[in-house]
Amino acid sequence: MRRKASLILLAFAVFFTAMSPLMRWYAFPRLAKIPPSQYQNVVLEAKNPTLLDYGTMQAKKVSKVSIVQTLKGDVEKAKRISDSAGRDVVVWDALSYVVGPDGKMVSKIPERYIFDAHSSEPVHATGEMVDGDPVRRDGIEFKWPFLTEKRDYEYFDAQARITRPIHYKGTTTFRGIKVYYFEQTIPWMKVPLPRTMPVPGITPESVAKTGTTRWYTTTRKFWVEPTTGAPVYGEEIMENELRGGTLLGGRDKVTVFKGHVKMREDSIQATVDLVSSNRVLVLLLTSYLPWGFLGLGVLLLALSLWLEARSRRPGDPEGTAVPHPEPVSA
């Protein structure tokens, strides 16, 4: 009976030991994925920034500017691209909606970001765009890969439509969570005007006819939770200018926006809560279950060997030959 139980425990030991690497290297890449229906809304604010008044074409200080960033997954589009690409793909329709202190729209820039559901690598497909312009992303945007590494990544800048390195600067703690800090600086460069302008009748085409161009620079900072690859906090020190042309009335340049943009407190808390819960799910596949299965397999193996040893009994001792007396002759 003990021998039978020993064999059963040995079989379970082999099973759980084999499951340990399978959970990490087979199940994790197939189960840890961004859902195609993901929806997220984040609000950022710039306190006391400089903002252009398009009515007077004068830059002035205002109390605040709010930026509402919305990410919404397009499930049907993702399914079609996934079927053609042969891998799970996520399609995010993003919108950056900028609002002035009076609640009026300053600008809005839509994006369509298509990427691999597990690796976060961009997937090039029809419909990838920024503000209606077709683009080809060669780097990540919005999210880092699962199990983010301590290294530089290529990051796409939607304003300039370019990809540049975003540098790993160190490890720190944010709201009790270990995070990697990344930073990217985009130097001054000419960028397209938004298609939707805050003043009716003014279009990028009408501004272009005056010879006036838009220039932009930014330093963006992200604090990324490495297990999920999700930023828990972000900031940007951003500046936009209009330069040259007849629109400026003889001036060389005028500031469109200049400010330090930070995530609002309610968005920070919601993001931290979401990332904390998702982190546990990823750790189940990469750490808790693999190590747990390995430990359970070793324990069952030890128990199996112990029962096997107990089931063995020493054999009966061999009989000792008794010599017979030889007959004695009288």
Rank of each mutant, 00 (worst) to 15 (best):
Trp25Gln: 10
Lys253Trp: 01
Ala46Thr: 07
Pro110Leu: 02
Phe293Pro: 04
Pro192Cys: 03
Arg251Gly: 14
Tyr181Ser: 14
Asp157Ala: 04
Glu241Leu: 13
Asp93Asn: 10
Asp152Ala: 05
Thr173Gln: 14
Ile114His: 00
Gly245Lys: 03
Ile34Phe: 12
Gly201Asn: 07
Glu205Thr: 13
Lys258Gly: 08
Lys47Glu: 15
Tyr181Val: 12
Asp93Ser: 02
His260Tyr: 08
Lys77Ile: 02
Arg164Pro: 00
Pro36Met: 12
Met129Cys: 07
Arg220Asn: 07
Arg313Ala: 07
Ser107Asn: 08
Leu296Glu: 03
Ala5Lys: 04
Pro327Phe: 11
Leu71Gly: 05
Leu301Asp: 07
Leu7Phe: 15
Glu205Ala: 12
Pro110Gly: 06
Ile81Ser: 00
Ile34Pro: 02
Lys104His: 10
Val98Asn: 04
Thr320Lys: 15
Leu7His: 12
Phe15Asn: 05
Leu289Asp: 04
His324Cys: 11
Asp93Ala: 01
Leu294Ile: 06
Trp306Val: 13
Arg164Asn: 04
Lys209Trp: 00
Val98Arg: 08
Pro204His: 09
Ala321Arg: 08
Arg112Pro: 10
Thr212Arg: 06
Gly73Pro: 05
Arg161Trp: 09
Glu141Ala: 10
Asp273Cys: 12
Tyr233Gln: 15
Val135Lys: 00
Leu307Glu: 08
Ala94Asp: 05
Val191Thr: 09
Arg24Thr: 07
Phe28Leu: 15
Asp133His: 10
Asp157Asn: 10
Val322Glu: 03
Lys61Trp: 02
Arg112Lys: 08
Pro122Met: 04
Glu236Phe: 14
Tyr113Val: 12
Tyr216Ile: 01
Arg164Thr: 01
Ala32His: 01
Arg2Trp: 08
Asp157Gln: 02
Pro21Leu: 03
Ala158Thr: 03
Val43Asp: 07
Ala270Glu: 15
Gly127Ser: 05
Val89Gly: 02
Ala302Thr: 13
Asn278Asp: 14
Leu52Arg: 12
Arg30Tyr: 00
Ala160Arg: 05
Pro231Ala: 09
Val328Ile: 09
Glu76Ile: 11
Pro194Cys: 05
Tyr155Pro: 04
Val91Arg: 00
